[in-house]
Design a protein around this nucleic acid. Structure first.
Length: 548
DNA sequence: TCGCCTATCACTTTTGAAAAGG
DNA sequence: ACCTTTTCAAAAGTGATAGGCG
């Protein structure tokens, strides 16, 4: 657990960030911070919480939020996956990402509190299939899954805390279960997605969404991936096996191949099943008549030649066949960056759940999802943060978050024992045009929205749509959101925590999820505005975040 | 028939509590 | 009595695979 005393020491640690990050931070040079923009017509800002005593939060945010740099950890590994076309397994129970999303953050104000969260948005409007050893567009995307946010369990924490060590999101899990009760991020299989990191400056209540909330978004194109229920590209399989410790049992360098051989009752211990499968694929593709599935050594050699890059399957493909390589920055691995300052909101999204690093260098703690509110008694079981179904499961965050004041101003002290997750099931992502500066097509979101509610998609291979992500979408969303707030209000009531400021008590029926969703929604929308140089469209609706 | 999804398997790493030692 | 280190079992994570489903 980090304490105030440790914060000063963190500066030294900050200068000497250990580990493998290294060059990743330099990539931030490509960041394109946007000036903090004042959303027009945000008279509702007056409704926000007053700035903290003695601290000019807005000024601090302006000094730091734009200067925050984020370096992707293990960028080279990500690149290797990206070049092969990253695939991420999604299961009903939830599957971790590998490589895991870890970042090194610099440029924060050491004493300012930030909230770090991730969302994963559709990268485009297509469904894919793996055909002829490469990914190809297979049609229009399925309706987007309910958007969920994954809040780092340490949130909120001081900049010193975040900068002290790697920030790991390795416990984030992906699922294809539309009714997932665990708060995992819901994705559609065979679709391409782009994770995004959001850094939000916590307000005086350790929340965000107030008038002074500033935030920025970082996108690493090499972290895009196609979700699958089973690996399609053998190269990805091999990369996972070679690099993921949990898959060590499938590695072929040691006697693990013997295990495979035993399992298969075969006499070719050098060949793993994945190799066999690859050989089969290669056989089909090359139509070599002389290749037999049991030609062990020879096939293994072929396999490893393949693995060594003899065939970069996307290298010379047409753009449509390069769904994962459509990000221009893949060559540079630079991140795309957006930064803005929110001027108004009457809604506070409290994210008081924070967990100490417990001296773990990687700062890997329990991950916090926005998820459905658990039974209320469950939320209060854990002293560190709310427990839930299983002790190791990410805690849930009940609605009406604003009622939860965060840490009472003491840096790096654990937050009140509150749950940290909540549903964001009603949150579609808005358009997202950071990279190509083009508008993207929208897709209806039938699960939780009417047809007028739109789902954003990253403009990659299908940025041809001329439909601008105009205010209509955002307005519609906002209306729907409020409607949902009304509907969900009673179910998400959240008992007040100790020391909660009065401002947090003002809107009992407003669930966290809507605040979070709308927050990111507006943020995403701002990204769209960035693309189209129209920043403000999404911000005005913040005014509608009334406390009920 | 095909593509996709799910449950299950055996294996590994991770985690945390208990035991042992200082 | 307290702290640190070691040990060990349970939990969790992994890709592979067979079978089910539409």
């Amino acid at each position: 657990m980090l304490q105030d005393k440790g914060l000063s020491e963190s500066e030294e640690a900050f200068r000497a960030p250990g580990s493998a990050l290294g060059e990743a931070s330099a990539a931030n040079a490509a960041s394109v911070p946007e000036p903090a923009l004042a959303a027009p017509g945000l008279s509702g800002a007056a409704l926000g919480s007053p700035p903290g005593p003695g601290i000019d939060i807005a000024a601090a945010a302006e000094q730091t939020i734009e200067n925050i740099k984020v370096g992707l950890h293990e960028k080279e590994l990500w690149k290797r996956f990206h070049e092969a076309g990253t695939e991420m397994i999604i299961t009903k129970a939830g599957r971790r990402m590998f490589p895991s999303y870890k970042v090194k953050v610099t440029g924060m104000n050491p004493k300012t509190k930030y909230i770090l969260l991730i969302d994963i948005v559709p990268a485009d409007d297509h469904r894919y299939k793996f055909c002829d050893n490469k990914w190809m567009v297979a049609g229009k995307a399925e309706p987007a899954m309910p958007g969920r946010l994954y809040v780092h369990p340490d949130s909120p924490a001081t900049g010193a805390h975040w900068m002290r060590q790697l920030v790991s999101f390795q416990k984030l899990k992906l699922t294809n279960n539309h009714l997932d009760p665990f708060g995992h991020i819901i994705l559609n299989s065979m679709h391409k997605y782009q994770p995004r990191l959001h850094i939000v400056k916590a307000d005086e209540n350790n929340a965000f969404g107030s008038k002074n909330t500033a935030f920025c978004t970082h996108v690493f194109p090499e972290t895009s991936f196609i979700s699958v229920t089973s690996y399609q590209n053998h190269k990805i399989t091999q990369l996972k096996i070679e690099n993921n410790p949990f898959a060590k049992g499938f590695r072929g360098s040691d006697d693990s191949d013997l295990r495979v051989a035993r399992l298969q009752s075969k006499e070719y211990p050098v060949i793993s099943k994945s190799i066999m499968r690859q050989r089969l694929v290669s056989t089909q593709l090359s139509a070599k008549p002389d290749v037999s599935p049991l030609h062990g050594a020879h096939q293994a050699l072929q396999h490893y030649q393949y693995e060594n890059g003899a065939h970069m399957q996307f290298a010379a493909a047409e753009p449509q066949d390069l769904p994962l390589n459509t990000f221009p920055a893949q060559r540079d691995s630079s991140l795309f960056y957006h930064c803005l300052k929110r001027r108004d909101s009457t809604r506070h999204l409290d994210l008081p759940c924070k967990r100490s690093y417990l001296e773990a260098p990687s700062a890997v703690g329990e991950d916090h999802y926005f998820r459905s509110p658990p039974p209320y008694d469950q939320q209060m079981l854990s002293p560190s943060y709310c427990s839930e179904v299983t002790p190791r499961e990410a805690c849930m965050y009940s609605g009406s978050g604003p009622e939860i004041a965060g840490v009472s101003g003491v840096d790096d002290l654990p937050p009140p024992p509150l749950s940290c997750n909540m549903w964001t099931s009603v949150s579609p992502y808005t358009s997202y045009s950071v990279q190509t500066m083009e508008t993207v097509p929208y897709q209806s979101f039938p699960t939780h929205f009417t047809a007028t509610t739109m789902m954003p998609r990253l403009p990659t291979i299908s940025a041809q749509s001329s439909q601008p992500p105009g205010n209509t979408h955002f307005s519609v969303y906002n209306q729907l959101s409020q409607s949902q707030v009304r509907e969900r209000g009673p179910t998400t009531s959240f008992p007040r925590e100790r020391g909660l400021p009065a401002v947090c008590e003002r809107k009992p029926p407003s669930p966290h999820l809507n605040a979070a969703n709308e927050f990111l929604y507006s943020q995403s929308f701002s990204l769209s505005r960035e693309a189209s140089l129209q920043y403000h469209s999404g911000m005005g609706t913040v005014e509608n975040w009334t406390d009920g």
